[in-house]
Design a protein around this nucleic acid. Structure first.
Lengths: 224, 224
DNA sequence: CTGATGTTTCGGCCCAGGCCGAACTATGAG
DNA sequence: CTCATAGTTCGGCCTGGGCCGAAACATCAG
């Protein structure tokens, strides 16, 4: 089977433990510097530098130089989705890195999944919007109902209209085994959460930490 | 970033050139024996045997013994989808294995993509069903319209109702840069094509070879 | 200019993993 | 039973790639 695109190159790129950790870190959606990524991956800077070059050359990440810093991010949604898929398969196969710690609880509570909200709260939001009739599954595909559209507009959630990415997409959580909301709307809602000051990212992790009031306001706004 | 499922193990499993070739071969949807897979990957049997064990242990493929043959197939749609995603990213990054030959033309014409039809003809079918109002994109998600449901029923296409997989899904071609139809319906249609004798698989490849009459009947039935 | 910080390049060590030849096990055909 | 075919296990060779220390390069702050 010598036909088709070269899967192996890309997969082996992701497959190195160092590079995989870096990519996982970049799933936060933020741009990170070489040093930060080295720390995430637990390797020295030189090693990281090499990996980052490989990933860049492979087209999985791209680099923006700013002064003496080099910021890296995933090249696009397709890469993020691929990594998500990998996590899904890995999780389904029980390939969890057995490590439960204090940070873990917060991660399960609310974390960022590339550009949208995941974790308990993400799942709750999804379920709530489904129950209230804002979202609906039409023929196994997720749709924002007219009622949902009005709700979103009323709340002032801004959704990127230009992107060709799907409006709603469900994204399978590896911690919960349930769906949460991704796609342009998922991103818009997370941005809205930040903008309203309901929650903030915990530096250096994927944890999204809600304030007490913020969590309440969030639940009230989206009625779940 | 020590949290989350262990991406690296799975990715590196796919990343080995030998194993990647085997997986690509299994994307045909057919079960293949160890020997066939060894040939596909271009390695000796002993090597293949080792790889197959790794893949099995990693949960990407499963084995069915039948006499002295061991048949392997992908464990599920999620794995196939993951591989598809990899192909997509690889193709988008221009990582095509530059190899054009006589077989290539047929592959671009009509081939199997795990369990549904891809290639020129697959894309044409998709476009046609869209144009005729059998399929529709509702909020960036693919839906089979009532009209489409009647059509499918009239043709006698059998769709697996039990599976929880989506009814319609679009699947991005790496040869065309366009969508074709996947999901339960995509599978049902391909089965229908075989059942009607419109086309048959070319042994050992992903090529789907239509007969002259078969191609005409296919186009007429689905009105494209 | 000098010094501090962030990143890359170079050279070398080392080991995991790919591959194969040869021998062994299982199933089937006669 | 014997022979043939499909697959696995074992042992060894060898390359590729991961990682690091040291040194070079780049950018900024004085």
């Amino acid at each position: 089977m010598r036909d088709g695109p070269d899967i192996a190159r890309i997969a082996s790129l992701i497959g190195g433990p160092g590079r995989a950790n870096m990519l996982a870190a970049l799933m936060s959606g933020k741009s990170l510097t070489a040093g930060e990524l080295a720390a995430e991956a637990g390797v020295r800077l030189q090693t990281a530098s090499g990996h980052l070059q490989s990933l860049e050359q492979g087209g999985l990440i791209c680099r923006a130089r700013q002064g003496r810093h080099h910021y890296f991010k995933l090249t696009g949604d397709d890469v993020a989705q691929l990594l998500e898929g990998l996590m899904g398969v890995a999780a389904a196969r029980g390939q969890l890195r057995t490590r439960t710690g204090p940070r873990d609880a917060e991660l399960r509570q609310a974390r960022v999944c590339y550009n949208h909200l995941a974790g308990d709260l993400g799942v709750a939001l999804y379920d709530g919007m489904m129950a209230k009739g804002f979202l609906q599954i039409a023929d196994s595909a997720l749709v924002l109902t007219p009622k949902g559209q009005r709700k979103i507009a009323a709340l002032g959630v801004e959704v990127n209209q230009k992107s060709r990415a799907p409006m709603c997409r469900d994204c399978l959580d590896w911690s919960e085994r349930r769906s949460h909301l991704a796609g342009r709307l998922g991103r818009g809602i997370l941005d809205h959460i930040y903008a309203k000051g309901w929650a903030a990212r915990v530096e250096g992790t994927r944890v999204v930490r809600f304030t007490g009031l913020g969590a309440a306001a969030f639940r009230e706004a989206f009625e779940f």
